[in-house]
Structures are given as structure tokens and as C-alpha cells.
Amino acid sequence: MSALLTSELLSHIGDTGPVKEEVVTRRDIRKYSIATGQRLRKFLDGDEAPPMFHVSLFWDVVELDQLSPDGVSIDGLLPKFPLEKAMAGGLKIDYYQSIFPGDILTANRTLTDIYEKQGSKGPIIFYEVIMEVKNKAGEPVLTEKTTRLLR
């Protein structure tokens, strides 16, 4: 076991968050498409969502007092880590169905791993969260694995 990752911290692997349900609107698709510089008309018109639209759909809508001083929302799924400076990591997304306006989608998040590596500027904690997005019929729409870094 590393110095940073205690058994209590690691015991949170497997924790799940509350299921979120969101309605996909043409307006939200259009806003996302413009913000990301999409060039395909079906996205700009909001007829279909770009592949990474779900990132905006399921980003936590938090209140001001839920933000830490750096403006990052406190993710209720995560334990308190000994390193707190958030850095972007990466994503892996498997797609099963496209997303359209009017879809009602649910997202279920699970903390699936916590581990530590030594970086050039000190230790880095990695954690992985898997989000399963399904439609109203319970069919899988996509699965996203996020890896985030803290230093």
C-alpha cells in the first residue's frame, strides 16, 4: 500500500452515486455544438447530439456553496483525497446508440479504481469512474470511463 492511499480510502472503490435523469433538448444540443465548434449541420441544428454531448448533460449542476475555492464542484461520489489539485485526465467512451432531442436518459456512476503513481513533480493520485448511460427503456446508450488526476 502506498503512503497516500489508506485502506479506508481504498474501501470507497465500488461506491455508487445517485442515479441522475435528464431530458435532452434541442436547445442544449445546439449550445453544446456551438461551444465545441461542430461543423456538421445535424449537430448545429440540434437534430442529433455530438458524441461527447453527454459530458455536458450529466456534469453536476451544483450550487455556489458546493464549489471549492478553485471553482471545482465537490463530487459527492469521491472520498476526501490527500491530494486536491484537480487535473484533467482522459476518457474512454463506448457508444451503443445516438442521442436525440426528447430522449430521457439516466446516468449511473461508480468509483471503480483508485491508484497512485510517481510523477516528475511528486505523487499523483488517479481515480476512475465509470458512468453508464441508459435510455428510458433501460437500453445502454453509452459507457464512459473517466480517469482523473490529483496532485
Binding site: 465545441t36 459530458v55 487535473m87 476518457l91 474512454k92 467512451i93 463506448d94
Partner: peptide
Amino acid sequence: LGDWLTQTAIEWLADDGKLVSVEYSN
């Protein structure tokens, strides 16, 4: 950045197929 990366694939693919998966790291 991940979205821009994804756009590279889907613009090349156009309407000729489906995106199955995408992966990236920052």
C-alpha cells in the same frame, strides 16, 4: 480537446458508418 479529437473521426466518417468507441488522454 477530447471533443475536437472526436470530431476528427466523425467528420472523416461522415454518414458512412457509426462511431463505436473513442479514447483519449490529456
